[in-house]
Amino acid sequence: MKRLLRRRLLLLPITLLGVTAVTFLAIHLIPGDPAEILAGGPLAPPEAVDAMRVRLGLDQPLPVQYITYVSRLVHGDLGTSLFTGRPVATEIMERLPTSLSLTAAAVLIGLPIGAGLGVLAAVRRDGLIDHAARTVALLGLSLPSFWLALLLVWAFSVKLGWLPFGGELPAFTEIERRTGVALVDAMLAGDVGGFVEALRHLALPAITLAVIPIALTARYARGAFAEQLASPHIRTARAFGIPERVIVWRYVARNAMLPLVTLFGVLLPALLGGAVLIEVVFSWPGLGTYLLSAIQGRDYAVVQAVTLLLAVLYVLASLVVDLSYGLLDPRIRERG
């Protein structure tokens, strides 16, 4: 375990440096002269282009640019937005809670449903629930989230009129902002009406995003439980006449948890990617819409920063998954 930990922790800074190199170089992927494009295109006055070049540090040699970039990052400086002129770090902090609330809601909906489906499917193999679970898992991984979002909007907002869509709250609703998450802020302010509205606005995007955890969890849980149920020690337990319920919850569940941990490693990138497009469809004021409007407005500092943040989150999550794998399975711990 110590060796595993040491190796992974040694590799971490190398990977993170590589990630910063990619986000740094992304600006050089822009065809032509980035300074000219960012200053407004070929019609921009040469002085403006030069000023932009200096502002972006593009007049410096590449290695110097990179070192400046990294040293700024280390000091928590993610650059300033070309459009608002505000620090990107500040803007990200305003958007992050909103995105996290959507992701958290999706996981809270998706994990129990997915796990329930998967376990029932494994226990009643080849039964009705098994078929249903496998269909759900297959479809959940095949339907593009942005299309599903449109279908749900059409059904529940347009046709039935049950749920609103667009943003976190109805237009012109004022809530005292503390955490940045409308749902939590309304609760803290004791605003029952606001809370209900926030919940209703959260429903459709959260359900759309929840399809990913439902499908992935059902697939993993079914696989893990089925594998355990087929193992010799369970056959022995059955031979002893231990009730099936006890077998499933006491013996199988514990051992089936291990592969479930890796699920988070798969789930996180899927959620991060899926959330971007879902946020766009629902005008959810999170990181996804922030990233997309930055892409459309060619606000590269913002694009770089958000990408970097998501990649770092992803790297750290997979590190945690690998390490917890070692913690849960003594065999991996020993091998290191």
Binding site: G18, I30, P31, P269, L277, V303, T307, A311
Partner: peptide, 24 residues
Amino acid sequence: MRIVDILLAFPPLLLALVIAAARG
């Protein structure tokens, strides 16, 4: 393999977005 590890550090859709954003 180091380069592969680094590219794997980005969720694929995000990487696609960034490349498309930079290249147009």
